[in-house]
């Protein structure tokens, strides 16, 4: 009974193999997600769901009560992303450069130490940083005092003007391991001949980095950027874990994810409104889609020239 099954039979079991994953996933995750997007065209009037077209979006962008919150969240989210791009990428590149340097000892241990925060839960990250930043129990004031910089200290998580930037930096701290590893891999894949050819032309050291290596790792930086973009505009957990759904102080750390959560489920005295929440979800979806399209059609195409 060990004759191999004939071709048509093979096709049939393929369907059986694929079905659980694809069907269950579609039914439980994808369908509800698109259903959520669909909900944004409806509203509840007298306990009945009626189709209202784009009215929810009109409210979201037109009604000052909503639009103010929306633009605040979007602006905060953009700032969150900008901090990541400005801080995470240069640090990631620098760490990768250090890591690939033949002069570094214990490099495997080094890589692990920097990568560890990436695999921790947001809950723990939020707590670990409170241990440091808390104005009363944290050690940041004491440490700054020890090096004579106490005047620099402020309750960073509690002040409107610093809270968002602080959280963005905590998030950078958590995820800097990913750009480091991506760029490290890219640096390793640069053929030695290219660097040697550069050396023959007198390009060494730092200028070799700027003129040869950096252009060659640009595609990796592109991938990091788009992953960061999608991650940041989907972000929710860290703010929720550190500041709660109210994204305090005074909504200064409110990003699209927390705004949507509050709208969906309500908070304190405000009731949840799934339809408006869906409208925000749709807006987020469009924003992320636009970002990804810009990357795919604007950025990645041009980068192809550099790849070998």
């Amino acid at each position: 009974m060990s004759t191999p099954p004939p071709k048509p039979k093979t096709r049939w079991h393929i369907a059986v193999f694929l079905a659980p994953a694809v069907l269950v996933y579609t039914a439980v995750m994808i369908y509800p997600l698109f259903n959520t997007l669909r909900l944004s065209f409806y509203a509840e009037v007298d306990q009945e769901r009626i189709f209202i077209g784009l009215d929810n979006f009109r409210t979201l962008f037109g009604d000052a009560l909503w639009s103010e919150q929306f633009w605040n969240a979007l602006a905060n989210n953009t700032w969150f992303f900008v901090i990541h791009m400005l801080v995470q990428n240069p640090i990631g590149i620098a760490l990768a450069a250090i890591l690939s340097s033949p002069r570094l000892r214990f490099s495997a241990l080094y890589r692990s130490a920097i990568f560890v925060p990436t695999i921790l839960s947001f809950v723990i990250v939020g707590f670990a940083w409170k241990l440091i930043l808390s104005p009363i129990w944290g050690i940041a004031p004491g440490m700054l005092d020890a090096i004579g910089l106490k005047f620099l200290y402020a309750p960073w998580l509690g002040k409107e003007e610093y809270a968002l930037t602080t959280l963005a930096l905590v998030s950078v701290w958590q995820f800097v391991g990913i750009p480091m590893m991506l760029i490290y891999a890219a640096l390793l894949s640069i053929p030695d001949e290219i660097l040697e050819a550069g050396e023959c032309d007198g390009i060494t050291g730092l200028s070799a980095f700027w003129k040869i290596k950096l252009p060659l790792i640009l595609p990796s930086i592109g991938i990091i950027s788009i992953l960061t973009f999608v991650g940041n505009f989907n972000a929710f957990d860290l703010i929720y874990a550190a500041q709660g759904a109210l994204a305090g102080p005074d909504f200064s750390t409110d990003i699209l994810g927390t705004f949507m959560y509050r709208t969906f489920f309500g908070f304190q005295l405000q009731l949840g409104d799934p339809h408006m929440g869906s409208a925000i979800a749709s807006a987020m979806f469009v924003i992320i889609l636009i970002g990804v399209c810009i990357y795919l059609f604007g950025f990645q195409r041009r980068l192809r020239n550099y790849q070998f």
Partner: peptide, 12 residues
């Protein structure tokens, strides 16, 4: 679905 926040599916 990785393009959308998980919060979007939490409700359903």
């Amino acid at each position: 679905t990785k393009m959308l926040p998980a919060v979007g599916v939490l409700y359903p």
